[in-house]
């Protein structure tokens, strides 16, 4: 399964980057989300995946008696997921605001250079 996940991570990254190369703002945002998902899976994978055993101590025990999944990457990913929602919300509102202000979805048309010597 690790190998499949490795391929999945690559696919997430490729698709994310590809979407970020597009000129449309919404696509940029989608690309960002895909990258975030890819990163989550990557952390999950590198931490070492263990099938089916959640890092939860059995009610009758006070410590682990068998193999358990690594809790640290899980804690990291959990916060990352929640933060990514906040990021998405903020970005989407920002995009909408830009769109209503400029009337354009084209990232290139935002490129106004006021630089001159």
């Amino acid at each position: 399964m690790e190998l499949l996940l490795v391929i999945l991570v690559g696919a997430f990254y490729s698709a994310g980057i590809y979407m970020m190369f597009r000129r449309s703002m919404v696509k940029l945002l989608l690309g960002l989300l895909l990258l975030g998902n890819g990163a989550n899976i990557l952390i999950f994978l590198i931490g070492g995946i263990t099938k089916g055993k959640a890092p939860i101590i059995k009610p009758q025990n006070t410590e682990f008696l068998e193999v358990y999944a690594d809790p640290v990457p899980q804690a990291l990913i959990l916060t990352a997921i929640v933060i990514s929602f906040a990021l998405t919300a903020f970005a989407i509102v920002l995009l909408k605001r830009v769109y209503t202000t400029t009337g354009s979805d084209d990232l290139d048309s935002l490129n106004i250079q006021d630089l001159d010597i």
Partner: peptide
Amino acid sequence: VVVGVVLTILFTISENT
């Protein structure tokens, strides 16, 4: 905090769009 943040975001957006 989570309830406050999510509801603020979603309600603000749905009110203003």
